[in-house]
Design a protein around this nucleic acid. Structure first.
Length: 942
RNA sequence: GCCCGGAUGGCGAAAUCGGUAUACGCAAGAGACUUAAAAUCUCUCGAUCGAAAGAUCAUGCGGGUUCAAGUCCCGCUCCGGGCACCA
């Protein structure tokens, strides 16, 4: 049996110094704790093979000016995890840095006339101070800033390696072009199809750009998702969908008449079983065939021009009204030899697959709608699988399933079962995989008809897939192909504030990567932004250079990398700080993979996929050993707040900060309106939205820290919602968190103040004497100790496995409520002491400053940040009796207490004997009794 | 449009493996302390009916499975995130 002594520190027996102030002075408490951590260099990590390592990482911030609540939430979650793991005895490394390249610096430069570099660096200084004030335990010696050459030189180096391996290549890609500002726009800079500054109608423009062959890694990126069992299922699903592996057929439609550069149209389909139902082929408006046809067709040319003004975002494409025009060209069906018209349609993307699709209106909703709109034929060739039960062989398929037409609308009739499918409106059944019918009978070519008539009838999807594919292959018209929705990653940006792409364009040698000894290509920072154009695009001293291959005159690439480039490998660089001769060194393999990664769900696909891709690139470069960068992932929800606004006569909204508004409540405390404090007049209540500048509903973390302290802010953030859900800001919730800390402080203060009364000396300890025998405790004291150790168990599980910090805090609150009810006896005093020592450590990861002060006040040496996590005393968890509830027909009717080891028979008898239960089963036959051990008994009566 | 989430008291939420729905906190109300206020402490607090005991109804909506459903299945509604140049 474990003795209670094992769970009490030796210091417990010493008299405790009463040096505690009765007032919770968070300012000095937080300053002192932060100073102590600094002096002890507590969070600076070194590689130590003897200890289990734990690499905890929160997504680094973009230095936009000051921290917002989303950051505070993100970093608090990560810090809680890091501090918890440290107390478990692990060698914890938690770094911080700055994702310092990006568009906002350019916008700020234009608005305030400051250089992006200066703006960014001063933001970093301010935000670093804020992070320190929040008490996050970072190893600042590893701090990195992506806009500095000592960081980005290594991604330039990696890129040149990728160019040599053929993993980086140049191709044309579509961008949003602002014809007035003469610049490329980001999707967010395009508002209602117009440039945000110029108001010009934005065009789609194709320009040559660098791409990375992420599609070469598609299979690995997909397969390795299965190994990421520490990731949320939801994120893995999103990535799998994004990669979008499909098995299909690539096939060719010949073009009826010779057209230069396009002798055949290649399309990809996952539904070759519907091939016999193709009634037209659609190509992108930028497809060479469409461009050709437009030369002699002004209507077509106008349509193509119109398509140039759609935004490049997929969401905009998807909600677009489907439009198209015939090219006046026919394609030859690869099996039947029939002519089908070629159309151009605005929903077909040139950069997606082959830029052409085959259309089967009978079995694809989008094709169906398009066919109805433009009166194109609809040919049903698939009957529902359920119809197959009636069909015994291919010949019968034809005989029993009849195709009829009314005003050009087809109908399938199953003569055996009487079922009918009518193509007058769309039905999702049409798109389901079924049985091929009429797949060959309409063929017009007399010889072909004989050969293939009825060839595919009666086949189900899989057999039809195989036979049609085999037929195409045999005739050289197509082949099976695995396709990915994932496209190669275009990394060129025509912007200034980014990492220069290390390439020299030579008129004779082409695009040449900058040689290793000439890296880094440093981005000039002494620039003036006097327009939206990147200043380096006209900076001759940057551009003019010589070709490293031929030595002739050449020009530097002025495009910069997508900022996802920097964030794709920063997690690895943290492991090798200060190395100026290599991107990474052997320290990377000590720390990697990241054990815990924490960041917003909004990064679930792009950033996390790119980082996984980069990790595989680094692996193939021999720089890291593992396959995946992030072992466990926590995606945290957004921070939202109420919004308030007023609308003026022309409908323009002015948003008011929640701090400047008083909500009005009805007698049930529901919000019915709000008034602006300044003028006392009403404002509109706009609902709860993500904290943002545009809605002016942001709450400044700094103001909260000043008013309540970092611990209160941290506690509120962790308590108000589980980490993966959205968090609603609430001023009174923050006050509640502060109140809890004050209460905790006071409870410990009162406890410490009585130290001399109860625990005077080591030797003559009257308390210790009756403590070591657990069974000497009163039932209430036993219950309190059980609660304490149940709480230790729960908090450990909540912080470790479950990562539900809100329930961990609630459990501690419950415990403190129980302790408050305990009597004043010496034994109770000791239990309280044991409890406060535990509670201080349980809360230390969440509210580390106050925990340090309490730890000291409770007479402990050293810092709680490195104290060992409390252990569970299993013997304290043992119960003599348990409470069970009784249900009759599933409804709660009574409850009683039995010995913990009571047999099933005893429990059943006790349940049946219960007075209230008797009332409900009286005169009825008991059919069944269900006993759920430790929980309930359900008596089922007739 | 496509993919992924979410919805439980007046509010934020809990219920971890299908087993006592509403823990913990906020707000509100009553009381104590105080010259007073703040702070603090104590109590009440899902709805309906009832004097009470208690009963019935409640986890976005409509069905289903089960002895038992907030939890599982089918079909909806509304809200949020991502959609490749915001990070």
């Amino acid at each position: 049996m474990v003795s209670l002594r094992d769970f009490l520190s030796d210091d417990f027996l010493y008299p405790m110094p009463v040096t505690m102030h009765d007032h919770y002075d968070f300012k000095s408490i937080e300053q002192d704790a932060q100073q102590d951590w600094d002096h002890g260099a507590l969070f600076n990590a070194t590689e130590d093979g003897a200890k289990e390592k734990f690499y905890c990482l929160a997504m680094f911030p973009y230095p936009s000016g000051k921290l917002h609540m989303g950051h505070v939430r993100n970093y608090t979650i990560a810090d809680v995890i890091a501090r918890y793991q440290r107390m478990l005895g692990k060698n914890v490394m938690q770094p911080m840095g700055w994702d310092a390249f990006g568009l906002p610096a350019e916008n700020a430069a234009l608005a305030n006339n400051v250089a992006p570099a200066a703006w960014t660096l001063s933001n970093i200084d301010y935000m670093r101070g804020q992070l320190k004030a929040l008490g996050f335990g970072y190893d600042w010696s590893r701090e990195l800033t992506t806009c500095l050459p000592d960081y980005y030189r290594w991604e330039q180096w990696l890129f040149t390696r990728l160019v040599k391996k053929g993993l980086a290549y140049k191709k044309t890609a579509v961008v949003n072009w602002d014809p007035i500002d003469q610049t490329v726009l980001a999707n967010e800079q395009v508002i209602d199809g117009r440039g945000w500054r110029s108001g010009a109608l934005v065009e789609r423009r194709e320009i040559p750009q660098w791409s990375l062959r992420i599609t070469d890694y598609a299979e690995q990126l997909l397969n390795d998702l299965d190994t990421l069992d520490g990731w949320p299922e939801q994120v893995r699903a999103m990535q799998a969908n994004w990669i979008g592996r499909s098995v299909g057929v690539e096939l060719h439609f010949a073009i009826e008449r010779e057209i230069e550069g396009a002798e055949a149209l290649t399309v990809y389909t996952t539904r070759p079983d519907t091939l016999m139902g193709v009634s037209y082929v659609a190509v992108a408006s930028q497809h060479p065939l469409a461009k050709q046809a437009a030369e002699s067709n002004t209507e077509l040319a106008a349509f193509i021009e119109e398509c140039r003004h759609t935004k490049v975002a997929e969401a905009d494409m998807a909600t677009l009204e489907k439009k198209g025009l015939p090219l006046g060209i026919d394609a030859i069906h690869p099996i039947t030899g029939e002519k089908v018209p070629v159309w151009t349609a605005n929903f077909v993307l040139m950069e997606y697959g082959t830029g052409a699709v085959m259309a089967v209106p009978a079995h694809d909703q989008r094709d169906f709608e398009f066919a109805l709109k433009y009166k194109l034929p609809i040919r049903p060739v698939i009957a529902p699988l359920s119809w197959k039960a009636h069909l015994n062989c291919p010949i019968q398929a034809i005989e029993h399933i009849q195709l009829m037409w009314t005003d050009g609308i087809p109908k399938l009739l199953n003569m055996e079962s009487g079922s009918v499918l009518n193509w007058d409106t769309w039905n999702d059944v049409f798109a389901e995989k079924g049985v091929c019918v009429h797949s060959g009978t309409y063929v017009s070519h007399p010889i072909l008809r004989q050969q293939i008539s009825r060839a595919f009838d009666g086949l189900d999807f899989f057999r039809a897939f195989d036979e049609i594919t085999a037929h195409l292959e045999a005739h050289g018209k197509g082949h099976k192909k695995i396709n990915y929705r994932l496209r190669d990653w275009g990394v060129s940006r025509q912007r200034y504030w980014g990492c220069p792409i290390p390439v020299i364009n030579c008129p004779t040698c082409g695009a040449v990567p900058v040689p290793e000894d000439q890296l880094p290509v440093v981005l000039p920072t002494d620039v003036e932004m006097n327009g939206p154009q990147s200043p380096i695009k006209s900076m001759r001293e940057f551009i003019d250079t010589t070709c490293p291959v031929c030595g002739g005159k050449a020009e530097r690439e002025t495009d910069t990398f997508d900022t996802f480039f920097e964030s794709s490998w920063y997690y690895a660089r943290y492991t090798s700080p200060g190395n100026d001769s290599a991107m990474l060194d052997e320290r990377a393999n000590y720390w990697l993979p990241v054990d815990q990664y924490v960041g917003g769900v909004e990064h679930a696909v792009l950033h996390l996929l790119y980082a996984r891709f980069f990790h595989k690139l680094l692996r193939d470069e021999g720089l890291v050993a593992g396959d995946e960068p992030f072992k466990r992932l926590l995606t945290q929800g957004m921070v939202v707040a109420d919004t308030y606004y007023r609308e003026d006569a022309i409908g323009k909204k002015t948003w008011y900060n929640p701090a400047d508004v008083t909500p009005e409540l009805d007698d049930k405390a529901r919000i019915i309106g709000a008034k602006l404090i300044e003028d006392g007049l009403p404002v509109m209540v706009g609902g709860t939205e993500k904290m943002s500048k545009s809605k002016n509903n942001g709450v400044d973390p700094q103001a909260m820290i000043d008013r309540y302290g970092a611990d209160t802010v941290r506690l509120f953030m962790m308590f108000a919602a589980p980490p993966d859900q959205m968090l609603e800001w609430s001023d009174s919730g923050v006050e509640g968190a502060h109140r809890f800390l004050k209460r905790l402080w006071r409870m410990v203060f009162e406890h410490v103040a009585r130290a001399n009364e109860f625990a005077p000396t080591h030797d003559a300890n009257p308390v210790g004497a009756n403590l070591f025998a657990q069974h000497d405790l009163e039932p209430a004291q036993k219950a309190a100790r059980r609660k304490l150790h149940e709480t230790i168990q729960k908090v450990s599980d909540d912080l470790g496995r479950r990562q539900t910090f809100n329930t961990a805090i609630a459990a501690v609150m419950e415990l403190l409520n129980e302790l408050g009810k305990l009597d004043d006896s010496p034994a109770s005093y000791t239990i309280r002491h044991e409890a406060y020592l535990a509670v201080t450590r349980l809360l230390a990861p969440i509210v580390p400053h106050i925990a340090e002060a309490l730890w000291r006040a409770l007479g402990q040496q050293g810092m709680v940040a490195t104290a060992p996590w409390p252990l569970v005393d299993e013997s304290a968890l043992v119960r003599d009796s348990i409470d069970l509830v009784v249900q009759v027909n599933g409804k709660l009717r009574g409850q009683f207490s039995v010995a913990a080891d009571a047999s099933r028979e005893v429990i059943e008898q006790a349940a049946l004997a219960d007075e209230k239960v008797q009332q409900f089963i009286e005169g009825k036959a008991v059919k069944k009794i269900i006993v759920v051990p430790g929980r309930l008994i359900n008596i089922v009566v007739a």
